[in-house]
Structures are given as structure tokens and as C-alpha cells.
Design a binder for these strands. Structure first.
Lengths: 329, 329
DNA sequence: CTGTTAGCGCGTTCAG
DNA sequence: CTGAACGCGCTAACAG
């Protein structure tokens, strides 16, 4: 049913090798042979068999992407950025969701590896074992990096971003600033927590009981935020470590009838479509999410292209966007 | 560098065929051979080569997904649903963004086809040619269907959904109801427009000038909504055909200082995370987005499994969720 | 139950 | 510039 190089070769009256040369665009071929091969290829409806090609060339022109959950807008934007960069070079991306679970992640990476992806970018799940990152095709970690996994990695300046969030709140006169975060097993979250601590300690205002740790979902964010807001001495401001926590905090505030910004100032990490749609619009630490994916793609392509040398870590800058959730801008 | 079946066979002291049989889990093998092969496989760190396997078995265990833009939450949810269903059967999904452009879509489908995906689900771009859907591996269209492309398709009851939206507005006493939609070249949009027309015509209230057509982005939604709201005789209610249009309408209303629900009632097609976060929360026609992906995956797997018969079209139900954007609920 | 022998479709020497 | 011949890693008969 599928038409092969041999088929078009026969139809064009040349050898299989010659046909392969013109179809694969390598090696010599007379102009005459060239046109005849192309003609019969079109006529027969030839589609190159990437599988066979991959088997011999040892390159699938495919790169794997392992994220927590593609429904998370953060991961979706990463996927888009990555996809844009690699598709331009003829690559396609194989997607896998790991649900922030190390075991599922391990299996996903195995599946991709056995499909012989030319490289992969993964957003490590909390608690991922570094062994998983040791061998295999070129790999770049994104957003987070597991200790001891010496691969390329692209992340944002998490600590600095957190510091700028807290400093903003400090400048506004807040002295009781809480934080809602997911697991510090996630390196980016750990760094954001570290930044939060550093900024507060510098003013002698650090209170560990104001850090509320939850899981990696919206519902977890709600629970963690509620724990912080549902107490007598609740903070007058909170910093949420990612979009789920921000969403959860908004829900908790509504539930407890805590008004933003009057009763509570809020700055969230990561910007989203709807942050300008809510009232008040949210002040956030915005991160270049698409760029994370794009840069990861570029690093990966460089490695696939043979770039050598020690693991490279690249950090992208975040930016404080002041809107209304900490008072009139 | 990579270890092959032959390598483990040698190490285990059996023939390549025997090793292949136990590793591939097919055919006979004595328990003794079995354990020895597994032992040396683990020892050498054998990873099956899916490419070679695919070449001979003519199955890549891979399915392609072509969407407009994975950053659109609608497509992301579809991807997730699809991925969940097919991964359970050992498949992985190859992702491609077509940006609602028929030409990019065509190229994406070609790329997937040449990678020999076992099947693909595609959300056809507006203006896609039916020829693109004729041959190739099993294909299911999702959300929309191109005329004359006789493939399986899974969609929602678009017209009925639109009717229930308009009826809701009608019941509230509105007589000038506008619509903001993207291109009617998209079959789901066309159906939603048809539903809108039908409901209004039944009451003798149809006014074609109240239909504002835009493109497939948020910015387009803003422009189209603005056109409708920025006129003397603006409608007292609008129905937005998808999440981008809804977002755009909200922006336009704010820009023109049109207050919801006081000055304008709004019901949008498709529910989103943030619709309960805005004030007022949005009344919407919710569609089972994850199910669209899941059902598409099931249909595809059935076809891949050899299911025969004429193209099947399945329609999923939508649901009106009344919140606050048409007045107190 | 096991080993031998063929390919799957294509890229790649190496003589002509 | 072209064709013959081999092999990528694996599955699939088919004898033993």
C-alpha cells in the first residue's frame, strides 16, 4: 500500500540508490534523473518513511517533552515555545504528562527513550531521582533542576523574582507577609522560598509560621491559602509561588471574605491571561514562559548538533508588573 | 553505544531470536532462558529500539495531534484527555500546532504521516481542503468537521448549545441579542451561529447586523466585540462563540465602560478556569472538553484496532451554567 | 522450545 | 554520475 523508494525507482527507470539520492537530497544525480524521479514520486504519491530513515540515520527528528500537565498554562506555553523553535528545524515534539509524579515521569522518559527521541526537555517532578537524568540522549531540564543531575538547564531567576515581590510589599509598608507555595522539593519553589526568606530576614521580619506549603494543584493552593488566611493574626499581604497558588489564594480570600487589596495585598509568581480580567487586576512577577521553551529548544538543538562542554545553566529574568492587587497602582 | 537484542543474546548465551522472543514478550521461551535473558538485559541496560520494532511491525505506537495552538486552554484540555486515553494503551502523542492555517496544517499532517503515526486526531483549520483527510492512517476530526471529509468525528452539540444560550437570554427579557464569533468557515462556529439564528428567528427577533465576525484570536475577539458595543443601538446582551471571543468581549466592555450585567448580559461558549474568578462570574455554555479528547482517542484506538464501517460522528452534550453575568442568579 | 534465515525501507560505501 | 550490495535492530516464519 505505501509506496517506497524502490517503487519510484522502478517507475523512473533508475536504480533504487539513485532514487534514494534525489529523494533524500544527498549525493549526486543528473538533472535528468532528478526530474524523472521527482515526477514518478509525485505521481505515485510517495511519502518518505521516517521510520526506516531513522533506523539507518540514527536520528528520528523528534524531541520529547515531559511536563507535569499540559493543561497547566505554564506548561502549555513552554510546549508552544519549544515546538516553535524545533519545528523550524524539522523536528516534531512527542508529548508526555507526568502529573508531578516521579514514577510516571520515569516511565514517560523510558517511553520516549525507547522511541529514540533525538533529545528531550523535561520539567522534573518533585522528588525525581538524578539517576534518571544520567544517560540517554541530550537532555535539558526546564524550570527546575534536580540536584546532581549534570545536564543543561534553563530556568528563571527565582530567588531574585521572589525578592522583588517581597520588596514591593515591604515598600508598601507591610510587615506581616505570608507565602503560599507548593513543595520545596521543586527546585524553583525552593528558590522562591529562599528569596522570600532572604528579603524578609534582611528586615528582621521573617516569620516561618507564615509560610504555607501545599501540593501542586489549584485545590492544594486553596487549602494552603486558607490555612494562612483563616487565623486571627493573618498576614496583611501574601506572595503566591505559582499560578495554582495564586488561583487558590483568590478562592480562599473570597471564601473568607477577605478583600483584596483592602484587607490583603497579593503578588503572584507567573502572569496569566486572566490576571488583568479580575478585579483588582493582579500584581505579579511575570516570567518569560515562551522563552523558557524556546531557549530550551535552542540548547537542545545545539547539543544534538554536537555541541560539547560542561552542562550549561541559563537563567532568564523575571519582571515585576504592578497592577492593582496591592492597592491603587 | 546502544545495546541491542543481539548483545544481550550473546551475553545470555542464547540465540538472538530467543532473546528477542523474551524481550518482545511473544513466542515461546523456557523459564531458564527467560531469566538469563532478563538478567543480562538488565545488566547491560538494554532499551528496546522502538524504531526498529516499528519498521517491521508497521506500528509506531504513536498517534498524532494537530491543533490550532496548544496554548489555547481548549486545545490543551483536548490534548490531555487524548493523551490519557492513548497512553494507557502504550501510545504516545506527537503534537503539532497549525495556528488555524490550512497550509501549516497540511505540512504538519505530512510530517506526522511521514513519521508513520498509527492514527491522528486533527482539529481542522478554517478553510482546510477535504483532500488532506482522504488517505493516510485512521483519522478523527475533533470539534469541527470539514465538508466532504468522510472520517470519524467527535464534536459537541453546537447548535443546541447556542440555542440554550440565546433562550436563556430571551427568557430574561432581552430582545436585542448580539453575537461575537470567529469565522463561520469553522464548522463548530457555523453551527453555533445557526443555533443563534434559529432561536432568534423563532421569536422574530433576528437582526443580522448584530452578528460580529472576527478572527481566531483574543485580539480579534476584542475588535469584533468592540464593533458591536460601540454603537448607539448596541445590544443589551451578547453571546460569545468561544473563549477568545468571551475574553475579547470582556476587554471591550471594560474599555467602553459597559457594565456587566447592568448594561450588558453575557453568555459565553466554553467554560474556563477563570470564569468564576471574574466579577460577575460568567454564565456559560460549558462543553466537556476533556471528554472530546478522550472520546476521540477511543474512536481512534478502535479504528487502529481494525474497527470497520462507515465514518462515525459522535456528539457530546453541552450544559448551560448560570452564574452572574446575566444578572443575579 | 530453539536457532537459522529473511526481510521491513532506507542510507551508504565502493566499484564501475 | 550510477548501480550493486550491505546493514541499521528487530519480528516472523520455518525447520529442527
Amino acid at each position: 500500500m505505501t509506496v517506497t523508494v524502490r517503487d519510484v525507482a522502478r517507475a523512473a527507470g533508475v536504480s533504487q540508490a539513485t532514487a534514494a539520492r534525489v529523494l533524500g537530497e544527498y549525493g549526486y544525480a543528473s538533472d535528468e534523473a532528478r526530474v524523472r524521479v521527482h515526477a514518478s514520486a509525485r505521481e505515485l504519491g510517495y511519502t518518505p518513511n521516517g521510520v526506516a530513515r531513522a533506523l539507518v540515520s540514527r536520528a528520528t527528528q523528534t524531541i520529547g517533552l515531559v511536563v507535569g500537565d499540559i493543561e497547566n498554562p505554564f506548561f502549555a506555553a513552554v510546549a508552544r515555545g519549544l515546538s516553535d523553535v524545533v519545528e523550524r528545524q524539522g523536528y516534531t515534539v512527542l508529548l508526555a504528562n507526568a502529573d508531578e509524579d516521579p514514577e510516571r515521569e520515569r516511565r514517560a522518559m523510558l517511553a520516549l527513550r525507547s522511541r529514540r527521541v533525538d533529545g528531550m526537555v523535561v520539567v522534573p517532578a518533585p522528588g525525581a531521582a538524578r539517576e534518571a537524568f544520567l544517560d540517554g540522549p541530550p537532555l535539558v531540564q526546564l524550570d527546575r533542576a534536580v540536584r546532581g543531575a549534570a545536564t543543561d538547564a534553563v530556568m528563571v531567576h527565582n530567588a531574585a523574582g521572589a525578592v522583588s515581590a517581597v520588596d514591593h510589599l515591604l515598600a508598601l509598608g507591610h510587615t506581616r507577609i505570608g507565602m503560599v507555595t507548593d513543595s520545596p522539593q521543586i527546585s524553583s519553589s525552593a528558590e522562591r522560598i529562599a528569596g522570600y526568606r532572604r528579603a524578609l530576614r534582611a528586615k528582621g521580619l521573617l516569620d516561618e509560621s507564615l509560610i504555607s506549603v501545599g501540593g501542586s494543584s489549584q485545590a492544594d493552593g486553596l487549602v494552603a491559602a486558607r490555612a494562612l488566611l483563616d487565623r486571627q493574626d493573618r498576614p496583611t499581604a501574601i506572595f503566591t509561588a505559582n499560578n495554582f497558588m495564586t488561583h487558590g489564594a483568590l478562592l480562599a480570600a473570597r471564601e473568607l471574605q477577605v478583600r483584596i487589596p483592602r484587607d490583603l495585598a497579593l503578588v503572584g509568581f507567573d502572569d496569566l491571561d486572566w490576571t488583568t480580567l479580575v478585579d483588582p487586576p493582579l500584581t505579579v512577577i511575570s516570567q518569560p514562559v515562551g522563552d523558557l521553551g524556546r531557549v530550551a529548544g535552542e540548547r537542545l538543538l545545539a547539543r544534538i548538533g554536537g555541541e560539547d562542554g560542561p552542562p550549561r545553566r541559563v537563567r532568564l529574568a523575571t519582571r515585576l508588573i504592578v497592577r492593582g492587587s496591592c492597592g491603587a497602582p
